[in-house]
Simulated scan of single mutants.
Amino acid sequence: MTVLELLGHVLTGTGTALVAVAALGLIRLPDAYNRANAVAKAAALGVVCVLLGVLLLMPGVFTAVVLGLGVLLQLVTTPFAAYAVGRSAYRSGAPLARATHRDDLGGAPRDGGW
């Protein structure tokens, strides 16, 4: 086993663990906003780690282009998706967790407009 293969296995294992942590956060966190945040951060980083690990395990120009495009799309689309989920949860009236002390949009209307 070469150093690149070992690093590839470490990256794929780390990415898989991060996706598992995101799934655990989806189950255990108290409200929709915390869940969306956990999934957006941990799952995005996990997928990127897995893709980089696969690149080290299967090196090649075509693989680098395809996986690089996958990493780019993952990093660009995940924040927008998390924002849309959080905004939809707020506009639909999803309750905040008890530990939340601030509601910066509390005076803003929930329906219509931005």
Rank of each mutant, 00 (worst) to 15 (best):
T78V: 15
T78G: 04
L75F: 07
L75S: 04
Y83G: 00
M58G: 06
L29F: 12
V50Y: 04
P59S: 12
V50D: 09
V50C: 14
L56D: 00
V61G: 10
F80E: 05
L24M: 09
G60A: 05
A64I: 08
D31T: 07
L24F: 12
V65L: 14
V65R: 04
L26P: 01
A84M: 11
P30L: 07
N37H: 15
C49Y: 09
L45D: 09
I27C: 12
P79A: 07
A94N: 00
T16C: 14
A40Y: 07
A32E: 11
R87S: 11
T63G: 03
R35P: 01
G86C: 13
R91Q: 15
T14G: 10
N37S: 15
R28H: 06
L29T: 05
P30G: 03
V10S: 04
N37Y: 11
G8T: 05
G68A: 02
A82S: 10
V85F: 09
V66A: 15
A38C: 07
G46S: 12
G60F: 02
P30T: 03
M58N: 13
G68H: 01
T63M: 11
V21L: 15
A20S: 03
G86V: 10
G8C: 06
H9S: 05
L18E: 08
L69C: 03
G13E: 13
L72W: 09
L26E: 12
G70N: 02
V47L: 15
A22L: 08
G53P: 03
G60M: 01
T12M: 14
P30A: 07
H9K: 13
V19F: 09
G53R: 02
Q74M: 03
T16W: 11
V71R: 01
L67N: 05
A81N: 10
G53H: 02
T12G: 00
A81F: 10
G15T: 11
A40N: 08
V54G: 00
G13K: 04
L55A: 14
L51N: 01
G8V: 07
A32S: 11
P79H: 12
L26H: 05
A43V: 09
L67Q: 09
T78F: 12
S92Y: 06
K41F: 12
A81H: 11
P59K: 06
L51Q: 09
L57F: 05
I27Y: 13
A81C: 08
R28A: 14
T14Q: 05
A32I: 00
L69E: 10
T77F: 10
T16L: 14
V71N: 02
A89W: 05
H9V: 15
L67R: 08
